[in-house]
Design a protein around this nucleic acid. Structure first.
Lengths: 272, 272
DNA sequence: TTTGAAATTGACGGCTTGTCATTTTTGACA
DNA sequence: TGTCAAAAATGACAAGCCGTCAATTTCAAA
């Protein structure tokens, strides 16, 4: 109820360490992926035994998953800022796209973590609890975007075709932006082929898609680019770098306290 | 010049082993990513020493990269089949999208390899030669797609807006399909949120984007779905499973034959 | 048959993760 | 304040991995 106020100092230290672990893990992952995340290194830098780290996270994958939760949390925050901006529904949905750009630019480490959980064998090794948390966050992100689309329909800015669900549109924007960002950062042949400003390309492609859905008002290049800059700076102002915000975890997940086998009472047999 | 005809039996065996290695690696990678690819296991299954494997590929990453080359090769092949189909330019570009679906469905292991090289630290560890090969393949893929778009412009089916390059459109389709496929296979919350038929969603989104570009004729749901099935079965017929085709590598990449330090002549001093 | 180059071998160094019996710390309670 | 069970911390350990290389074997041309 009272946040950290009620915690004993020991418990505060434990929680603090949890975020310290994540702060240490973030650059490692960003540098070399899951393979570069070394439990030994974290323990050493934290001046702790390795077993202690494993008290917080049962394995490497769980750490990456925790970072992914941070990632989606931060993105949701940006989305909410974007959605609250005033303007047409078309502008608000575009603002979400810009939020994605800001997210990738300001929090590249977290974006990397998000990418990793999509490819490595993370789902088999991680806690159901934390997976559920991530699902929840992702769901809220989609819900936010879907909200703008629903507003557009309600306001008459867009009419839904027969078999075209709101969710499909959200999925499309998500694919376009996520796929574009991934290809941007990892495709060797993009520049060779003539994609010079991939961000602009992604924006134009999103606009093409929205135009195709007849989401009014249709795209007009003129005032657009100035407006993009305005939104971007506004969002940047509300996006501190990773690690700067103390994430208040309401229900911290500790590694399952396994019923510890009673240690043989030490110093028992006095005679010796 | 004469393929394998002129090779000594030993050399034939070596080339054969190369593809055997890849055949063994494919399911491993598909199952658990780069971490599940064990050089020891490959050596054991091939009944060879581990050093021999390293004669073919200088490290794990190079194996994945080789698989990625296979992947893009196969996809290019499918693209070419798709492009050669008769129909409007709009139909031919849609056929490429269907080719992507067939590719992911029939060759999931190769798709996985392609995903892995985009995320793990592969670019720093692999041969420039093979990276160049991959870039080349990717470039030809994009070229094929761009060709259809150029045909469309030439035929008057589409007019390019001012700052909208052909390459941007290709990039957009690529993002949409690749991103959609990745999210489809790795996003836990997709189904929860109401995306039931993600393939259909991807197709509709591609069509929205093309509609937005005013690529004629615009999307009409009626005849579309039947036609999709026809194209799909046609492409499926021309897509054998992975490992079934003997890939003829024109210029095989062997690990650099390092100038081997002269071993001390064995059994030199006869008297003993 | 000879012979030098190419291919193969497998033990080894150095790294990793995850475990667990043991020891230390903690905080509620008398 | 002193006691003590429960919680947390420890670090040596097993098991696994990758990539190397000196030594050995195989090969094919002469």
């Amino acid at each position: 109820m009272f946040g950290m106020a009620r915690l004993t100092p020991k418990q505060r230290m434990i929680r603090l360490r949890e975020s310290q672990i994540l702060d240490l893990a973030r650059p490692m992952i960003a540098q070399g992926g899951l393979a570069a995340l070394s439990m030994d290194a974290i323990a050493q830098e934290l001046q702790t035994a390795k077993g202690t780290i494993y008290n917080h996270f049962p394995n490497k994958e769980e750490i990456v998953l925790a970072l992914a939760v941070q990632a989606v949390d931060r993105r949701l925050e940006l989305f909410n800022h974007a959605v609250m901006m005033r303007g047409t529904s078309r502008q608000r949905i575009a603002a979400i796209g810009i939020a994605c750009e800001v997210y990738v630019d300001v929090l590249p480490d977290l974006f990397r973590a998000e990418q990793i959980i999509r490819h490595e064998t993370v789902w088999g090794k991680t806690t159901e609890k934390r997976k559920e948390i991530l699902r929840n966050c992702e769901g809220r992100c989609m819900h936010t975007v879907a909200g703008v689309a629903r507003d557009a329909v309600a306001a008459g800015d867009m009419v839904l075709e027969a078999a075209h669900q709101i969710e499909d549109i959200v999925f499309g924007l998500w694919s376009l932006v996520y796929g574009g960002m991934v290809l941007e950062t990892t495709s060797p042949s993009l520049v060779d082929v003539g994609i010079v400003d991939s961000r602009a390309a992604i924006r134009r492609n999103c606009n093409s898609m929205l135009d195709g859905l007849k989401w009014q008002p249709l795209y007009e290049p003129e005032p657009y680019s100035i407006w993009v800059q305005q939104v971007r700076t506004h969002l940047l102002a509300n996006c501190p770098p990773a690690g700067a915000v103390a994430v208040e975890e309401p229900d911290p997940i500790r590694a399952e306290t396994k019923p510890r086998k009673l240690a043989k009472p030490a110093k028992l047999g006095g005679r010796e």
